[in-house]
Design a protein around this nucleic acid. Structure first.
Lengths: 218, 218
DNA sequence: GAATAAAGTTTCCTATTGGAAATTTTTGTT
DNA sequence: AACAAAAATTTCCAATAGGAAACTTTATTC
């Protein structure tokens, strides 16, 4: 093959490879923590653990051998489409792919929120105090709320969201409306667990505004 | 981060009126189209729920406005790199991005537990009352516990388990021991969020046994 | 309602990806 | 060791993503 005059010399290659290690920059706000590295390695691991050749993997995923090779060697950043084909073809679900890349499960994170020191977020019907708001990427979102609403009519429509929700009444008394059930009155100490996708709403029915704790799963 | 910028609004669910239906899967894991369609929509949802403009999002993620727009409108398939910047910049973890498609079970489950009516499960150090125990297959496990322990020595070893844990002190006062931090005293209303894999233990330090609420993610 | 500003989309161009085929590396056989 | 076969990598080029700026749409103000 050509040697001295080729525009892409071996030297260039080496240099490129080195730079590959940390391709996060753009000094802007994004916290580009180095979560990168893993993907290619991970894919290779999985492929090998299934005892597949690139050829086979190519057949199953619909991606070219060459493309797979490049992905495994971190030479390219596959498009989302490609990632999906990969995941489908190799029978891995995407979260799994990133599970390792993301970070180890046995972290030692801890966040403490003193009473009343959460980040407050008011709405017409509730006054929410986000707890543990320092910690990001949580699996659950806890918040303590004061139920301002005094009538079901305060709600233009059902409140809905992804995930599941746990509710505990801390003080006062509320009426708990849900889309598929009769309303129920809950007092301090009563709790409920329900699907967030089901419409729901709370109304204070005690002298003072009731206080509740919510934990939502993501 | 974590300041006066748009408060994390998982709470702005009010505006999340529609849950899209209609995903035609052909059962097998072969077709990638299904999830593909979701990505843009999902990103847009998330961006809006954080009350961000494309401009803002661009600043945070380091991706161009135009690129973000194209992604949201499914005009391009972002590279993995781009997806990562997205996830970092918008503070979402990647699995969450992909979670949509399969989560189409907008069930309407609900379980109510009256104060003191949970299923009790005593241990030497705690007296646990499982809440919502009627409901199985939950993503979270809530329980209210009385902290019997009076000394750290009551614990033969650290308590550890999978997932993450949210802790709220309901009454009394506890000392919160963790594997990687100095012990902290918590009073009624104080809360903490931490990784279950990190050793932890509670000890009552008030006159009466303290009462706490725990929610563990699975 | 026109004028202005802000948010979002499209265009145009460069940089990068993805695939077919050539090349190199690895593995197995005599 | 030499050869052949299989697997992996690299090259080259067409197709596509990403970014800057032009443009269109949607709010906001006078």
């Amino acid at each position: 093959m050509s040697d001295q005059e080729a525009p892409y010399s071996v030297l260039d290659k080496e240099r490129q490879k080195e730079m590959e290690g940390s391709l996060d920059d753009n000094g802007s706000a994004a916290d580009s923590r180095v979560t990168e590295l893993q993907l290619g390695k991970r894919v290779k691991e999985i492929r090998l653990s299934h005892n597949l050749t690139l050829e086979e993997a190519s057949r199953r995923t619909g991606l070219a051998r060459s493309t797979l090779s490049k992905i495994e060697n971190e030479q390219i950043s596959p498009t989302f489409q490609a990632v999906q084909k990969l995941a489908n073809g190799l029978n891995i679900d995407i979260p799994q792919l990133f599970a390792t890349a993301k970070e180890s499960r046995c972290a030692g994170r801890r966040d403490i929120t003193r009473a009343g020191q959460g980040r407050v977020h008011p709405t017409p019907t509730y006054e929410h105090e986000m707890l543990a708001s320092q910690l990001t990427n949580k699996q659950m979102l806890p918040y303590r709320s004061i139920v301002r609403s005094r009538s079901f009519d305060d709600y233009p429509s059902w409140v809905r969201h992804d995930g599941e929700e746990f509710l505990l009444v801390l003080s006062g008394k509320v009426r708990f409306y849900t889309e598929f059930y009769e309303p129920v009155d809950l007092e301090a100490g009563d709790s409920s667990y329900y699907d967030g996708g089901m419409g729901h709403a709370l109304v204070s029915i005690s002298e003072e505004d009731a206080e509740v704790l919510w934990v939502t799963s993501t």
